[in-house]
Nucleic acid binder design. Sequence first.
DNA 1: GCGAGGTCTTTTGTATGCAAACGGCCGGAA
DNA 2: TTCCGGCCGTTTGCATACAAAAGACCTCGC
Lengths: 220, 220
Amino acid sequence: MGSADITIAGTSAERVYEDLRAAIIGGEYAPGERLRAEALATRFGTSRTPVREALMLLEGDGLVEIEPRRGAVVRTFDPADLVDLYEVRAVLEARAAALAATRVTAEQLVELDAACDRAEGLTGHSARTVDTLIAANEDFHRIVIAAAGSPRLSGALRTVAGIPRPFKTVFWNDAAERARSLTAHREIVASLRAGSADRAESAMRLHVMNARDFLIEVMD
Amino acid sequence: MGSADITIAGTSAERVYEDLRAAIIGGEYAPGERLRAEALATRFGTSRTPVREALMLLEGDGLVEIEPRRGAVVRTFDPADLVDLYEVRAVLEARAAALAATRVTAEQLVELDAACDRAEGLTGHSARTVDTLIAANEDFHRIVIAAAGSPRLSGALRTVAGIPRPFKTVFWNDAAERARSLTAHREIVASLRAGSADRAESAMRLHVMNARDFLIEVMD
DNA sequence: GCGAGGTCTTTTGTATGCAAACGGCCGGAA
DNA sequence: TTCCGGCCGTTTGCATACAAAAGACCTCGC
């Protein structure tokens, strides 16, 4: 799994950044919820200074909104925001898939298969099952992006990659969407294995666009 | 010109961020040059705290590299970095052009014409001329991106938009490249005016890819 | 002369203190 | 009742103080 991005906690600010990011994406803080610097400092065992730095980085990632003199809140996503986000994601991930088709390693293909396998056959709706699906899905996309081998593409995707857990849950509670997603993932892996950039690109674009459409549909 | 993004200096950190970003892009700090927090604080009339925050934001933009306990330096770009950057830019700006074709306002079209006009007929190689060309070019691209009306696209582009001045100068010292760029800009404006998303997208992709190729060619 | 070790300086990263701004609360007037 | 204005608590933003780490330098030994 995330065997590559082991950060041995260089600075305190970095650690807070990563932990807080995970906490927000993991749904620990609800969208719209206020993030008071002092409380976070207490939670992470530091002072407000590294917390402030982490919050500014998270603002750059689009996960947090900071209004001067008013503090930070977890970003809320209205339907228009999410559509916008998914369309940019579609463009970037399609490109990543195209690049990955010519650069993916045998080892990465095995990891992609493994991520698909982990999602296969899960039928329940328990929190544990949903967690597994979310994790497998994120691993899948992360590996494709890594396989693209483009630092700038990875950086650009950071601004659209993370959305809070509540928004993701709706996908994985829908059985049809689960099946469609798994099929798409398998198709993408097959395209990558075949080295077909065009097919991988199209498959990935379709996959993300389908997610966008499902999100639109479910929002009413 | 930048009549839309007038920030009345919300916080000190924001002001330092913008000014320092402009200074780096403007070539005031050479790639690889060390950015000592204390010196910057003196320069901007603040303490190190807002400077540190600005530096972390600039790291997110890919303009600065921060190594823990070692400080910040202006990012250096080797040929591979620049190729990577321009290819992501091509994808994103092409998408921006496509969106802009359906959303651009009459006023923005006028501004785009004005940006092209400003670049037209300039033949000298003086610093002043080059500055004008760089500014006109940046205005052009900024307006297209604004016309796309996608906050996430704008955000993603921030990570690939800014490169230090020395790298841009090579373009605008080459007469053939100037002419080709102007032609491309005119073509893009025409496509936007016609509301042709496909044409605008293709024209923009071609334009950015040409820039990439020129950069590759000139780097040896 | 050259390399290793230790010390000293510089610079970073973090904590804390302090002033200012925001939001809420209360009281009063229409 | 409802709206307006002033006060107070809370929280932010910035400056500064302090500890620790990196790099420079110097000395000593070989």
